[in-house]
Amino acid sequence: MDPFVVLVLCLSCLLLLSIWRQSSGRGKLPPGPTPLPVIGNILQIDIKDVSKSLTNLSKIYGPVFTLYFGLERMVVLHGYEVVKEALIDLGEEFSGRGHFPLAERANRGFGIVFSNGKRWKEIRRFSLMTLRNFGMGKRSIEDRVQEEARCLVEELRKTKASPCDPTFILGCAPCNVICSIIFQKRFDYKDQQFLNLMEKLNENIRIVSTPWIQICNNFPTIIDYFPGTHNKLLKNLAFMESDILEKVKEHQESMDINNPRDFIDCFLIKMEKEKQNQQSEFTIENLVITAADLLGAGTETTSTTLRYALLLLLKHPEVTAKVQEEIERVIGRNRSPCMQDRGHMPYTDAVVHEVQRYIDLIPTSLPHAVTCDVKFRNYLIPKGTTILTSLTSVLHDNKEFPNPEMFDPRHFLDEGGNFKKSNYFMPFSAGKRICVGEGLARMELFLFLTFILQNFNLKSLIDPKDLDTTPVVNGFASVPPFYQLCFIPV
Rank of each mutant, 00 (worst) to 15 (best):
H230S: 06
L380D: 12
E92V: 08
T320F: 06
K48F: 07
T386H: 11
N133M: 09
D463R: 08
F219G: 03
K118A: 14
L245H: 09
P363T: 01
E147T: 14
E203C: 07
T55V: 11
Q454H: 07
G96Q: 09
L234S: 06
S242N: 12
D466T: 11
A309W: 01
F428A: 00
R261Y: 02
E285F: 06
I213W: 12
Y225F: 13
M271I: 12
T364V: 14
P481T: 09
V82C: 15
G384A: 05
H316P: 00
P3G: 12
A86N: 02
I47E: 06
Q192T: 12
L7W: 12
V82H: 07
L391E: 00
I462Q: 14
K185T: 09
P317V: 07
P337K: 00
K190A: 11
N259Y: 06
L391M: 07
C151T: 09
E274R: 06
W120L: 04
P317Q: 10
V113T: 14
P30K: 00
F239V: 09
G27Y: 11
M271L: 08
H396R: 12
A291N: 05
R125P: 05
S390V: 12
K322M: 12
S53P: 03
L306E: 00
D143K: 10
F446S: 03
T302F: 05
Q356L: 12
H230T: 06
R342W: 09
P227I: 07
P260Q: 05
S180N: 13
G40P: 02
S53G: 07
I359C: 15
C338L: 09
P211T: 11
N176G: 04
P367K: 07
P481R: 14
K459S: 08
I47Q: 12
P337E: 01
Y308S: 08
E92S: 09
I434E: 14
Y347I: 07
E285C: 06
H411T: 01
N176E: 02
V319I: 12
N423W: 06
L71H: 15
P409M: 03
E104D: 11
E72R: 14
E122R: 14
L294A: 02
K235S: 13
S58V: 05
I182E: 02
V5D: 08
G296I: 15
